[in-house]
């Protein structure tokens, strides 16, 4: 069973469908106990990071997500689900986030169309099993106006260029998070889910 956090903003259907396509069942929840009890946890995201944090706070999920991740259990963050892991975001004025990964969420530089919307390449800067079977510089689907800037560059597993070179994949132990939407990135995106679930389930009974 794969637990997906529902905080009232994101469209979860595409994430659920992608995981169902790989043959796994999902549980959608807004409940703190479910998060703490999860064996595999996914935090999807669309919209603004500040709103997402407000929703997570309202649902009293920030503590449980922090606890879940610090226990070292498998976690996948997507788009805003990546951004809220950071210390804080500049989006709509400074908003504190979960502060699990030290660093800031910054606005993409002017000079090109914002949001960064469409398929762009991910350069695999650190070898990681999340990229298994995926060629370097494969295109994934992005839609965002802000990017993550971790203090510890060693956490950057994938990078993408759009005016600047920004971090598009973070890996840290059992935590994987992507700025792009793997559930909207065709076969390569399904492969990311498959690789994550394989990693998550290594040696464990999760289904």
């Amino acid at each position: 069973m794969i637990t997906i956090i529902d905080y009232g903003a994101g469209n979860l259907r595409s994430v659920v469908n992608a995981i169902a396509r790989l043959g796994y069942q999902t549980k959608i929840t807004s409940n703190a106990d479910d998060v703490l009890a999860a064996k595999v946890l996914i935090l999807p995201g669309v919209g603004a990071a500040g709103d997402t944090m407000a929703n997570l706070n309202r649902l009293q999920l920030t503590g449980p997500i922090n606890q879940y991740i610090s226990d070292g259990k498998p976690f996948l963050g997507i788009c805003v689900g990546l951004q809220v892991l950071f210390t804080g975001t500049e989006e709509g004025g400074w908003h504190d986030c979960l502060d699990i990964i030290p660093g800031k969420v910054r606005r993409l530089p002017d000079g090109q169309k914002i949001p960064h919307m469409g398929w762009n390449q991910v350069k695999q800067v650190t070898p990681h099993p999340i990229f298994e079977g995926i060629p370097d510089e494969t295109n994934f689907y992005f839609v965002h106006s802000y990017y993550v800037d971790p203090d510890d560059k060693a956490l950057v597993a994938g990078e993408t260029e759009y005016g600047i070179t920004f971090c598009s994949v973070i890996t840290h132990g059992n935590l994987v998070a992507t700025q792009f939407h793997p559930e909207r990135s065709g076969e390569a995106g399904l492969r990311i889910y498959n690789n994550f679930l394989k990693l998550a389930m290594a040696g464990k009974e999760v289904i």
Binding site: R13, N17, R184
Partner: peptide, 8 residues
């Protein structure tokens, strides 16, 4: 469509 198509 969303059940089987994984692009935007």
């Amino acid at each position: 469509t969303a059940d089987q198509v994984f692009i935007p």
